[in-house]
């Protein structure tokens, strides 16, 4: 989840993180309309939309759909549940710190000298 990773940035002004040098992976996940509907209010829509657009995955509506159609849900499913960032650098806009994603695992730890 793009959003969850970004939210873990510990710096005050550094959310969301900018994603650079991304290598994406398409997953095949079972579509579950009820699940996507429940997931929507837990997402940071603006960040999800911006990230999905910048990575060229999809163009989501500007506002979170209040009565999502099946097509909306399918699109959110694709963006949030079937797209995994395999490799990337997540860059903090506040301090420039780079959090790497390697083998699909974001590393949010700071080095000892940065704490």
């Amino acid at each position: 989840m793009l959003q969850c990773h970004a939210k873990s940035c510990p710096q005050g002004q550094s959310y969301p993180l900018a994603i650079r040098n991304a290598e994406l992976e398409q997953l095949d996940a079972e579509f579950n309309a009820d699940f996507v509907t429940r997931l929507m209010p837990k997402l940071d829509w603006a960040v999800l939309r911006k990230t999905a657009f910048e990575l060229g995955v999809a163009e989501l509506p500007a506002e979170i759909p209040t009565e999502p159609t099946q097509a909306d849900l399918q699109l959110i499913h694709k963006v949030a549940l079937e797209t995994r960032i395999k490799e990337a650098d997540m860059v903090c806009n506040g301090c420039g710190h780079v959090y790497p994603i390697k083998d699909g695992v974001p590393n949010m730890l700071l080095q000892d000298h940065e704490i």
Binding site: C4, K7, L27, N107
Partner: peptide, 14 residues
């Protein structure tokens, strides 16, 4: 099983 892993100390800030 579909699952995501995150390297961090305890919890991300959700």
């Amino acid at each position: 099983i579909p699952l995501d892993a995150l390297r961090c100390d305890l919890l991300p800030s959700l």
